[in-house]
Every structure is written in structure tokens, then in C-alpha cells.
Design a protein around this nucleic acid. Structure first.
Lengths: 214, 214, 214, 214
DNA sequence: CATGAATGAGAATTCATTCAT
DNA sequence: AATGAATGAATTCTCATTCAT
């Protein structure tokens, strides 16, 4: 009984937090960190201003909590979808790499709001004074690093290729969002990836010299 | 005399306006439309709050003026640098296309603040409520349309290629800005463009069977 | 067993209360009643907000409890240090009076935080709306009354002298606190007291006609 | 005409500032810096919150402005009342010194609100975090220094005497305020000063030898 | 005995904007 | 051409307090 109750209460608290973060994601995704207000978020969560801040101390901390939360969830999602772990990074076949990126994009297609939030923050956080600046600088380094390592066995200039993939992924996502998801993002991605990643059947990196005769 | 004065004053006025817009570009580039304040801008221009609004009426109108101003200037810049006009669009050779994009990116390299502003607004304006939303929706359509037309004679799926080029350009710019211009953007661009655009000597892309008669 | 526990708990409760009051004294001494917050006090006591109020009901009651607690403790301290009781007041020799004041000040030297709190509240409570206003009005009357009675046999205008002593004591304490206890308060006090209180051997002050058989 | 208008406008602004500061003095005198609110002050000045802050940027700056304003006015008042200047400090006769202090206190009697504000801040600013802390530390040093110099030719331990005078002045003022000006402060002061300052006719202070051989 | 959750009131401050001058 | 004065609305955040558990 007691445990049940306790559990229920705890769950309630955690659940509420989650709900708030979900709503915050939507709001920030639309208006950006500077453009949304604690007030509006609270209203949407049917909480008072103070009630909301009870959970997250300040607007800034809310943002940080949101990013942390997302990071955890996304890592889990991707891990589950690909069956790959950190250890595999250096040993992936080209096919694995393709599949991984495909999954990444496919995952985004199912949650456009997440994609929107990330992309909005991604550029808003360019500003060194932005509360998520550090987070995104670090994230970018991490992502480019990871991609480079994955690509290293397969392409001549892994960092360049990583940059291209990141650019294409984010750029296509942005266009997709702006067009109200008016085209097939995943297909577009596959097409783009095919240009940037060497085709699997042929021995890689000949490209680096001869280019693609196909 | 009087005319002189008037002229002088007008010139001063226009000059002042320009100065304000330049400062606004920096500010908006860093903090976004929602994140910057008339107050701060006025301070930086050594004007009072009211003094600034005398020129632009409202924050929103300021943004619009800024975008219009930029549009004019950039069109002029690109036109001058490439020697191409609107009429040429459909008749460009692949080489011209390559050159055009190269100029575009090279132009950005010389004015990172402009690049920053555009990219920040580009994602901030995803929000339908953003005062520049319409502008950017239209701009995107225009850009993709123009690029598609330019690419049509040369690639199988011009719109896809246009999307890729736009994505790569913006994505690389963002990475370049975030890294504090820590890599050679132009070189990176050329590398990326080489993958997406067919190499000039060989007709590339057997896929382009059906071709587009447009 | 049960009684034990209860006792233990009670003791814990009382102890906790005391700890809270001690911390409150520090805080109020530094920031005043208006300037400190239940929140900060709770944090310092490693208690929740609600936990703290469980003990004292409200901020105002906390202040009152603090003053009462202090009153008790100080009365005890002074009584113990001088060996004098309320009944002795009218029969004190000049030497006793001197000694009493000396002890009072000496006592303050050992606990600057108490001194600080009293002096801060002493002036903050000038405001009729202050929750300790009544307390301090009454306290002042009591102190002046008591001092006057003690001084009556020895000086011509006991109330004036009482006012002077009170002023000197508080004023020197304030200077002492502001200078970070940068001078010898007790020595300073003795010097000042010597001017205000008649020297014991010589009857000083011809005004004091009534004589003193001391 | 134009000058007139300009002057009038300026005066208006300055006048308003003055009115605000006067009201602030009352409010801070009653509730202290922590205890008063911009809101209430604005209401009393028939201004909006923002309207008030237009003049003084922030609560803290308001306090500083208040203190500066007071300093100027008080220096003027005292100078006018005594006819003494800074240069005279070291050459004052005992009689001058007495007169100066008398004027100081008499001046206070005519403006109890000023006295209240100073005394309230005087103790509130003990806290190193208080925005007027520095101001009051410095002020205390200056006052004690000045008094000491004035007293140096006349008493054995000028700093001690200065401390006593400061203590008595402030202490009596406080009692006077707390009693709702229920006694004759000036008379009380003269009585106290007579004890601390050597009487002019008699070759003061045989004590000065017997007690401290320093 | 104490907490977790929440609130209503109010805090200081900022914002875009207005308007007479 | 620009300012000084002012505002209403909103912002983030803090406060003391309540109440079920």
C-alpha cells in the first residue's frame, strides 16, 4: 500500500516533469529559447508560473534539463533501432553506416517536433551567450568525431564527409519542416547519402581519385 | 542653400538608417529576432529608443527593412561578381553553375555576419508566427526554383540536387560559424559540390535517362 | 522503549529548533527581518521550506520565537555572570553598576552575532509596522527604566544617564561591528563609562545633592 | 522662449527626481532598503513602476542616488549653519567644536525623516552585501577621521572621543525616534556632550593623565 | 517529523511603443 | 530629426504559505 502510494506520487512528479518537458519541446521548437516564455509554458501545462519553476528552478535550467532528457532518450532510441553500441563505431561496415544514418533520419521523420527543436536551438545556440551554446559546441564536436571515426575506414576524408552528412541531414530536415513535411524526407536523404557515401559494391576510395564513372 | 541642406540631411538620414541596419544585422545575427531588443540596438547606435523607432516605426518593420536591404545588396553583389542576370538562368553551362555557387559561398566567407544573420533567421522563421516567416518561405521557394531551373539541363532530379546544394551550403556555413570559422569553408564547399554536381567533362549520371525537356 | 523514543524525538525536536534559531540569528543579523528569507534559512538548516515552517508556523512567529529565546538566554547569562537578581536593582552600589555594565559589554564581545542581530533589529523595528516593533518599544522602556532605577541613587538625572549609557553601548557596538571588530570594544566602553558614570571615590557631580551613602 | 521652455522641462525632470528621492527617503526610513518596494514608491509618486525606473535604472541605483543627493544637501546645510569650511578643521576651538555638534544635532531635530533614514541604513548596511555597505564604511571612516582631527588639540584620545560622540549622537537620535520624538533631543545631547567634551573653563581632564599612561 | 507539490501575491526589471515637443 | 518622459504589458523569479501525505 504504502509503497504503491509512494510510487504513485513519485511517478506523478516524474510524469509531470516529463509532460512539462514535452510541452517545452514544442514551444521551444516553435519560438526558440528567447521567444518562448515560462508563462506560456506554464499555462499550457495548467500550472502557475511558480508551480512550473518549482520543477526547474529557472528558464535556463529548464532548457538544460530538456536537452539532457532528449539526449538520454535519443541515445536509447538509436541504440535500440540499430542494435549498435559505442564499441562498434570503428568496426562498422559501409552498409552498417548507411543503415545507421538511414535509421537516424527515419527516426526524425516520426518526430518532427524533436527535429524542429534541435534545429532551432542548433542555430540559436551559435551565440556564445546562449545557455545552450556550450552544449551545442560540444555536441557538434562529438557528432563530427563519431561520424569521422565511423567513416574513417571507408572514405578518404572522413571529416569532410562527416560535415557533408551533417549538413545534408540538417539542411534537408529544415527544408522538410519549412515545407510542412511536404516531401519525402527519407527518400531525399537516401538520394543524398548515395552521393556522399561510396557505393558499397565497389572497392571504396577509388573514388577518391577517379571519381564516379557510373 | 536650402536644397543643399535638405540633401545633406537626407543623405545623413539614409546613412544613419544604413548604420542602424548594419548594427541590427550584427545583433539579430547573434541573438535572433526574439532575442535582441530595440533598446540595445538604440544604445549601440547612440540613439534613444524613440529616436530609433523614428526611422523604422516598429521592431517588426525594422526586420523587414533589414531583409529588404540585404536582398537588394546581395543581388547586386552576386550579379556583379558573376556577370550573370536573371535571363541567363536557363542557359547556364555546368561550369557557370559551379562558378555561381562558388561565388555565392566565397561571398559569404567575406561577410560572416551576414551569413550568421541569415542562418539564424532561416531557422527562427520556421515558426509561422515569426514576422519573417513568409519572407523565408517565399525565399526558399524562390531559391529552390531558381536552382532547379539552373540545374535542369544537367542533372536528373534538379529539385533534389537543389535541396542538396542548399543543405550543404547552409550546413557548412553553420559548422563554419560554430567553429569560429575554424576551417576553410570554400575548400569544403568545393569538395561537397563536386559530389553533388556532375563532373563537367563526363556526362555523369546515367540515371538521367528521361531527361527534362524543359 | 516508546517513552525513550518519544523523549529522544522531543529532544531532537528541541535541538533542531535551537539550531534553526541560531541560524536565523545569523541570517537576520546580516540581512535583517525584511532581507532574509525562510527559503534561505531552510536551505541552511538542510530543511525544506515546509519543514521549517512546521516548527514556527510563520516568518513572523519565527522572529518572535527568536527574540523570546534570546531574552531567556541572555537574562540567564547576565544573571549568572553578575550574581545579581531583579530584586537587587534598587540597592546596587556604583561599583556594582559599573560591573554590571562591564559584564554586559564583555558578554557582547564574546558573541558578536547576537550583538549584530540586536542592533539590526533595534533600528529596523523603529517602523511601527515591523513585527518586532512592540517588542523593541517595550524593551527600550524596560531597559531605560531598569537602568534609571539602578542609577537613581548615584546620579542626578538617572534617565539621561541611562540614555547615554544605552547610546554608548549600542553605538560602540555598531562601530565595532562595522570595523570588523577592529578595536577593543571593552576598553572603549570602560573609557566611555568612566565619563558618564561618576567616579566611585569622588562624589563628582555637585548636582548630585542628595548624596550617596555608598 | 525656447530657453524658458527648455528650462522648464529640465526643471520638471529634475523636480520629479527630487520628489521621488524625497518620497524614497521616507519609505526607506521606515522600511529599510530591503523592506521597501519600487512598486510602493512608484505608487506614492503617482508613477508606474517603469516610469520610476526610467529615472533611476534600478532599486540599487536609486539608493545610491539618494545617498549622494543627501550628502550634497547636508554638506551644504551644515556649512551654511556653522560658517565653517573643511580648511578650518584643525584649527577649531573647543567652543567651535561644541557649536558644530550642537548645530549638527539641531539640524537633525528639524528633519526627523532624514535622521531616521540614515540610522536605518546605518545598521542595515552593516551587511557587506548591502548596496550601501561601502558607502557607510567609508562614511564612518570619514566622520571618525574628521571628528578626531577636530578634537585632537583638545582631548587626550581624539578617536575615542570621536567614537563616543558618534555613539551618543546616533543613540540619542534612535531613542528619540523610537519614543516618537518624546523628549528634547537637543537638551539631551548638550548634556551628553558636556560629559564627553572637556568643559572649556577648567583645564580639562586630569583624568587624561591618571588613567591611561599611553 | 517533514516533505513534495503547488499557489497567489508580489518582486524588480525589460520591452516595444507613444506622444508632445 | 530626435528626445525626454512615460506607459502597459509582460518577463523571470522569489516569497511566505498551505495542505495532503
Amino acid at each position: 500500500m504504502i509503497t504503491n502510494r509512494k510510487r504513485k506520487r513519485r511517478l506523478d512528479g516524474a510524469l509531470r516533469r516529463k509532460r512539462i518537458l514535452d510541452e517545452a519541446m514544442l514551444l521551444i521548437g516553435r519560438r526558440g529559447y528567447h521567444g518562448f516564455s515560462i508563462q506560456e509554458l506554464a499555462r499550457r501545462c495548467q500550472l502557475t508560473n511558480a508551480g512550473l519553476l518549482y520543477y526547474f528552478g529557472s528558464k535556463e535550467q529548464l532548457l538544460i534539463a530538456l536537452l539532457e532528457d532528449r539526449e538520454l532518450r535519443d541515445a536509447a532510441t538509436v541504440g535500440a533501432a540499430t542494435g549498435l553500441t559505442r564499441q562498434d563505431i570503428d568496426r562498422l561496415t559501409l552498409k552498417d553506416v548507411r543503415r545507421l544514418f538511414h535509421v537516424l533520419v527515419a527516426n526524425g521523420v516520426t518526430q518532427p517536433d524533436v527535429v524542429r527543436m534541435f534545429n532551432v536551438l542548433y542555430s540559436e545556440a551559435l551565440d556564445p551567450g546562449h545557455p545552450a551554446h556550450g552544449n551545442f559546441v560540444e555536441r557538434e564536436a562529438r557528432v563530427l568525431g563519431t561520424f569521422s571515426r565511423m567513416l574513417a575506414p571507408h572514405v578518404a576524408q572522413p571529416l569532410s564527409t562527416a560535415r557533408q552528412l551533417v549538413s545534408l541531414m540538417r539542411g534537408l530536415q529544415m527544408q522538410w519542416l519549412r515545407s510542412n513535411q511536404g516531401f519525402d524526407l527519407l527518400a531525399e536523404w537516401d538520394r543524398a547519402a548515395a552521393l556522399v557515401l561510396p557505393s558499397p559494391e565497389r572497392p571504396r576510395r577509388s573514388r577518391a581519385r577517379t571519381s564516379k564513372p557510373s
